[in-house]
Amino acid sequence: MKKFAIAVAATVFTASAATAADVDICVEGAYPPFSETTESGDLVGFDIDIANALCEQMGKSCELVKTDWDGIIPALLEDKCDAIIASMSITEERKKQIDFTNKYYNTPAKFIAAADAGLTDTPEGMAGKVVGVQRGTTHHDFMEGVFPDVELKLYGTQDEVYLDLQAGRIDAAMADSVAMNDGFLKTENGEGFAFFGGDYDVPEYHGEGVGIGVRKEDTALKEEFNAAIDAIRASGKYEEIQNEYFDFNVYGS
């Protein structure tokens, strides 16, 4: 009973954003392989390792705060955390609200569908098809802009997109190619599904790569992150983390 009381107290008072850590970092925890939550509730993934490496480099203590994608920018603005490391692309629209560091990786977007679906990635070929995207992402904007005749289905997390793709509720999904390859296609759930069409990296929609989001007034923190990104790239730490997850260069050119 006592144990339960403690558990309940923990549930009620996960309150304080004012944790003892120097920097609280919002992460998503539902976007494998960049950010995922294990069965036991631990956070793992490329974003998580990069976050920890950067904190170590800066000599600061960090606390990871798991936050839904929908609420992640408001969470930063509301001081629930001080930075966002959640595979967030640097776009003009987002820059109206927050500031970004330089990119820490950049990978193209792609379609996936059932391997035998026989779809072509032209606006005509996809017309009338049901495509799932995570709402409020660059992929959401991209699909609306470039594939206007597609029936879009919007999801809160990328994991839910995979669930409905498997259930056959959507014909295809559009998202980051690496996220879909490692987070879905390579897993047993992704059996029978494959990429189709070309790589998409349109600056107008996809921005300038993935950066760390910070509040506009926190320029010092932004510069510290930038210096730390350069430092871990120079020291080989970045490559070490990259090789743990991928067999290619995710930083881009």
């Binding site: 008072f13 309150a15 954003a17 004012a18």
Partner: peptide
């Protein structure tokens, strides 16, 4: 989502630190 902002503004106007609204709360 919205109560958070309101609460923070209120707390800060009294000079306090930001607080967090948990799902349970």
């Amino acid at each position: 989502f919205g109560g958070q902002r309101l609460l923070n503004q209120l707390v800060r106007s009294f000079g306090g630190e930001g607080v967090d609204v948990s799902p349970f709360l």
